[in-house]
Amino acid sequence: MSLRGVNRSFAVSERGIPARQVLTDVTLEISPGEIVALIGPSGCGKSTLLRQVIGLDSPSSGEVRIDGSALVGIDQRCAIAFQEPRLLPWRSIVRNVEIGLPRGTDRAIGHSRVTELLHLVQLEESSQLRPRQVSGGMAQRAALARALARGPGVLVLDEPFGALDALTRLTMQDLLLDIHAAEPATIILVTHDVDEALYLSDRVVLLGQAPGSAPGSGSGIVRIVDVPGARPRDRANAQLARIRSELLEGLGVERHHQVIPQPS
């Protein structure tokens, strides 16, 4: 998959919101089976970029190509888990996950796949509940299962673990890696958690305003970091710790080297 000079700007709306440039010249080559983590400050256009990738929205200029052909409309090879769970409130959890199955899936095969996925995201006991009867984290896991059900070539995840508690989050990260090892899809993942990005991805892409550019000129790729080491990685690796503080600096987080003097 490749993104070439992707620009996206939103026109002046009728309610008087001024036109603005959100993405400027995003160019990125992603090889098949690669895991790319996208980080950047809130509102910098990460979700907008993902929408271009799966064809829900199209760039103002530039293009997105998958397997060498330009993306037109929504591609059946892609699946997305949105930033919000977006489950259909009138369907039970299991019926929501079924929506993700690719077209023409055999009934029995589809059923066993959905059952397995619900087991993997630890939702089999809640499979008959409606979305309003489950917690935010459970809904998010259901949305992840829905995206996985497609068995996609390109899996696009927008903060897939944002609503999960620490333990479930770590379990789901390992689950994602296991699934990726079994069926190596290309994964593009947005996260706010630098550690998560370093644990999961081959490359971390830092999105944001280029340093020194005029405000309102839109975000581009500020830095791309290759993450060393084969998965599964040690979360406490010293080399990763150094990259982490580099990335945090890129996000505008100050490093605290100095010891704060204790008031006596």
Binding site: A166, P232, A236
Partner: peptide, 16 residues
């Protein structure tokens, strides 16, 4: 799908 089963245990040790 191949699923690692010891992942939870690893994690639990680190983040008790």
């Amino acid at each position: 799908m191949a699923i690692r089963s010891n992942s939870e245990a690893d994690v639990a040790a680190n983040e008790a």
